[in-house]
Structure formats: structure tokens, C-alpha cells
Design a protein around this nucleic acid. Structure first.
Lengths: 330, 330
DNA sequence: ATGAAAGCGCTAACAT
DNA sequence: ATGTTAGCGCTTTCAT
């Protein structure tokens, strides 16, 4: 910057004004500085800038996902990127893998880089350790699940409602023995969805049969194995609700392996690519990850603009998409 | 940091030494400083640190993808994240959407944050504008495609070889009229794959029929439409090779719509989730995005460690995965 | 409209 | 083993 000032024959402050697009510089001076910038291939140092500037802003946010390569998470990612891009902000992305320690490490690294805000898909556990950070003024929004033991903004899907609708849908097709596959209870979404299952049964006046419920499942293989167990039981379910997309795919594999994909009903939480091209096509409760991301980014930007109102919880609707697998009669 | 020094009753430099884990501080002093850090909830400022430090390193890299939410790209992302995580580095991720201008904007923003290195899936076009940056010492590796008009490290798949193998495979199943669906020629992978198609035909002694080739396709819908055109022609192809995963899915839809999915052979470039559960299951030429990412990160870290040797080009093998759609006889 | 100088949080050189 | 000081690139007073 000093070089630019020297070449343009102006003072340091003037270059700073030009670089930051501030008023109070004559057009000729701007042009001179601009050409010096171009000639020297000068690149503004945002880090140094934020160090000195009053608001301390780095125009940078941190995004913590369960896994950047998970399709649901990466759709969230894209929506958030697009939303903050307009403000010239860049996003640090990281994967926590549902690991609380990894989450803390990443947040610590992000803090050290002085990100303006944080969008977090929280791992299970206690997030009260973020209270000082929150109070300090770092904008923070949780997505997909609320933070544990921390009063902070959250944007989530209507998990219970979605699964409730799925159960009701299957009941309407004559099913009474409906199995359920769920992820680790510690994850808020998993326990809310299980609640929805129980509510759905209750509304239909069906007693809960614990033997039809498999929780703590993680990934396709475990979904497949759990489905196999359900199907092998004395009184197997006539339909299954799966609480997560990889579990759904596992369930499909198990059904296929037994030639039961057209006999046993199936509704999965989360839409996925090609669900409509499988046979039968898969009925799902579709979340809208892009919408979740947009709303989260919107809230974050509000906070960054100084909004200090009480924390908000936004619940996005989900949609049951009938495609075939959920319309198999009992 | 000044506060920490005051509370611990030591000098600034000593706190810096402790924070950076440098030798030459007595165990007691370290403990005292550490406890002051904890008490004050002090967080090191990496930006300020890099400003003053000799090597200027920010422990940060930039990753430019076509789209962070594209499954192939996000797998790359994850592999790179994992590789640099061990060094305590964070990654800025961004989507260029095959848009050269967007790429420049992002790179400019990353430069302004003084990233140590760049991993880029380049949009079509001229990348010589990065030469000053490269010379200046920013580590830079291109993945999936080489940079245009810039001599820089690149990690790519064997695109031509993969499509050649696909054609040979179809020929072995009796096909002579093989259609091809490809993306925009400006993208290196698209033109290399088209080359592979022509090579495969040439090796089989089959004359190229331009009417069987559809290029400049973008996305599922265009893939479907192009397939429809091929199938509606006077002498339709008995098999199709698709040069990209979304085009493949489009082709499947078109075949299904005409009930031809068991008559017309299909091999797609890029594996995708559920390709094995479709009927018929889809034969693909599988790339290994995680391996591409690992190799790219490896190269980048070498450069970051000061390697100034001539630029390297690493080509990763691809694998033809026969699943059914590619084994339909002519 | 412009410039000079102070100082953001830190590391490195030089003290001791 | 530890402290003092200069200065990284920048923005912000406060001058003029």
C-alpha cells in the first residue's frame, strides 16, 4: 500500500480511502491511485485491514457441517455460500462427523481467524461452552438441529411432523405394523423423528411395539442389517419408516435382497437423488436444505448487522412426496 | 495477549512463545501463562500473527470447486479437508459454476485473505492471469482439469482412457452404432472424453458418425433431451456412452420413458449413488474423487513446504464397473 | 480533499 | 530464561 501511495504520489490514507471506496477523494486522485494499484498488482490485505478497523470484521464466516460431502449438508453449504456471497463474504467449511471434540477444535480454529459469524450443524452434546463467544458478539446460527444447552438461533425442519405424516400415510394404506429405523438418539433430529413416529401411532390408536423400532443406527450397512432383523422377526412389519436417507437406502437393499420391495411399504425421511427412478420409486418426507440454508444465512446476516433481539427458532415445513413405495397396501 | 502477559506477570514475548509452543520457557512460566490464558478466555489471533511472522503463513487454503454441492466435487472437498486438517489448516470453499469471472472474483477474495495455497477445479478459459500469483509463491494445484495456458500442477483422471474403455466394452458386446453425450467442449474433461470416444471407435475400426454425437450438453434435462433426439433418429444407436453423471441420469430417464432401458446399452462416466440399485444397474467408468483430492492436497503441501521443482501432472486411473446396462448385447 | 502519525495484536530481533 | 522494542499492512483520528 505504501508502494501504491508512493507511485501515485499521494498519502497512505488516500490509498486506503480509494481501496475502501470511501467518499472524499477527487475523481482524478482515484484514477491515479487505481492505475498505481493495477500497475503494481497490489492486493488489499483484508486481515491487516480488519486488525485495525473499528468493527473488526473479517468478511468471513465459518460453516460447520456434519460432513461437507454429505448431499444434504452440501446443499445447505451452497445455499449459505450464495446468501453471503452478495456481501463479499467468504466461507470456511469444515466437517465435524458428529464428533463434539472435532467441533470444538474447528470452532477454536475459526475463532483464531476471527470469523464474523458461525453457522453450525451441531454435534450431539453441550454447547454452553460457546456462551462467552456468543456474548462477545460473534453471530451464531444453528441449522438442522438446535444447540444443546445454549440459547441461540436455530433453523430446523419439522421433524416430528414429517414422520407423523409418514405414519399417518401408511396407516391410511392399511398398515398397522409399522417398523421404524432411526439414528443415534443424542442427535436432536433423530429423537424428534422418533417422537413423530410415536405420535403417528398414537393418533391412529396403534400400540407401540418396541420390537419394531431400531435406533442408534448409523449408515447404509446398519440400516440394511436392522431392516433384515425386522423382516426376519415372527411378526414382521408390513411397512417401514426410515428416519434418515442412508438408512432408507439400506432398507431398500434389504427389501430387494428378499424380493419384498413391492410387498412392504417404505417411507424415508430426506429426499435423495434418483429416489424417483428406483422401482418402486421411493416415497419420502422431503426437507428443503436450500431453504434451511437460506433462512440460516438470513438470520446470521441480521445478527451481523447488529440485531440483538432474543434468539429465534425457525421451523421449516417438510413435504411428503408419494412415489410408490409408500402407497403399497398392507 | 497483553492482558495475559500482565495477569501472568511476564513479558509479551513470553506469552507469544507459550502460545506458539516454542522452547526456551520454563515449565512453571508455561503453566502460569497457560492459566492466565484460560482465565481470560484468550484466543490467539492468527491473522495478526501471520501479519508479523516471517513466513507470512495463514494456515489457510482456498478451494474452488465447480459447485460445493455437486457430489463429485464435495467428495474432493472432503478428501482435501482431511489432508490439510493434520496441519491445522482451514479451508475456504467456493463455487465457480464454470464461470470464469466468478472464479476470478473468488481468487481475488482469497488473495486478499492471504491464503497459503489454492486448490482449483478450473473453469474453462485462460488462467495465465494467475502467473504473478504463482511466481509470488502461492502454492497452487489444479484438480480434475489442468489450468488453461498456465504451467502448473494438475491432478486429473484418465478421461480419454476411460471413455475408450467404455467404447471397447460396448463393441465387445456387439455394438457398432454407439452414441455419445458430452458436456461443453471448453471444459478439458469434456473434450478429452470425446477424444476417448473417437479413439475407441477408431480402434474398433468403426467410422465416426457425427449424427450420433451430442456435445455442449449441460445437466440432466439436456441429457434427456439429447438422448431422445438420438433415439428418434432414422438409425438410432444401439448403445450410448455418456460423458458425465447428470447426463447419464438424463439418458436413463429418456430410455425409461421409451421402455428401452433393457434394449439400449449404456455406460456413464462417473459413478453415482444408487447406480447399483437402478434396473438395470448402471455400468460406469468410476473416477476416484477422494484419491484425486488426496493427491492434490499432497502436492499442495509439498509446494507449501518449499518444493520449487517443475510442475507435475498426475493422472489417476479410472475403473470400468460393469453392472448391467453396459452388458446389453446389440 | 488530503496527509501525518498512532496503534490494531502479534512475532522477531536484540537485549539482558 | 525472559523482557523490550520495532514494525507487519492497514484504518482512523486529527491535522491542514
Amino acid at each position: 500500500m505504501l508502494d501504491v501511495a508512493a507511485l501515485a504520489g499521494v498519502g497512505l490514507a488516500t490509498v486506503s480511502r480509494v481501496v475502501n471506496g470511501k467518499a472524499g477523494v477527487s475523481a482524478v486522485t482515484v484514477a491515479r491511485v487505481q492505475s498505481a494499484i493495477d500497475r503494481l498488482d497490489y492486493r488489499h490485505n483484508v486481515n491487516a485491514s480488519s486488525l485495525r478497523r473499528l468493527d473488526r470484521k473479517t468478511a468471513t464466516i465459518g460453516l460447520l457441517l456434519e460432513d461437507v460431502s454429505n448431499p444434504f449438508m452440501s446443499s445447505l453449504h451452497r445455499a449459505i455460500e450464495d446468501a453471503v456471497r452478495e456481501r463479499g463474504m467468504l466461507v470456511f467449511a469444515g466437517s465435524c462427523d458428529e464428533n463434539a471434540e472435532r467441533e470444538r477444535e474447528l470452532i477454536s480454529a475459526l475463532r483464531a481467524r476471527r470469523v464474523d459469524g458461525l453457522v453450525v450443524v451441531p454435534a450431539a452434546g453441550d454447547h454452553s461452552y460457546l456462551l462467552p463467544e456468543l456474548r462477545h458478539g460473534t453471530a451464531m446460527v444453528f441449522v438442522d438441529r438446535p444447540a444443546g444447552f445454549l440459547d441461540a438461533d436455530a433453523v430446523v425442519s419439522d421433524n416430528a411432523g414429517g414422520v407423523r405424516a409418514a405414519v399417518t400415510h401408511l396407516v391410511a394404506h392399511g398398515h398397522r405394523r409399522i417398523g421404524y429405523l432411526g439414528a443415534v438418539r443424542g442427535i436432536a433430529t433423530a429423537s424428534e423423528r422418533l417422537d413423530g413416529y410415536q405420535q403417528g401411532l398414537a393418533r391412529a390408536g396403534i400400540a407401540l411395539d418396541e420390537r419394531l423400532v431400531r435406533m442408534e443406527l448409523n449408515g447404509m450397512a446398519e440400516g440394511e442389517a436392522a431392516t433384515a432383523v425386522l423382516l426376519a422377526a415372527g411378526e414382521p412389519p408390513t411397512a417401514i419408516v426410515s428416519g434418515q436417507n442412508f438408512l432408507t437406502i439400506g432398507a431398500i437393499k434389504a427389501l430387494r435382497a428378499r424380493g419384498l420391495q413391492r410387498q412392504v411399504g417404505l417411507v424415508g425421511f430426506d429426499d435423495f437423488l434418483l429416489a424417483d427412478l428406483l422401482e418402486p420409486a421411493v416415497t419420502v418426507i422431503a426437507q428443503d436444505p436450500a431453504e434451511l440454508g437460506r433462512r440460516a444465512a438470513e438470520l446470521l446476516l441480521l445478527r451481523l448487522d447488529g440485531d440483538r433481539s432474543p434468539s429465534r427458532r425457525i421451523e421449516c415445513p417438510v413435504e411428503l412426496v408419494p412415489r410408490g413405495s409408500g402407497e403399497i397396501a398392507a
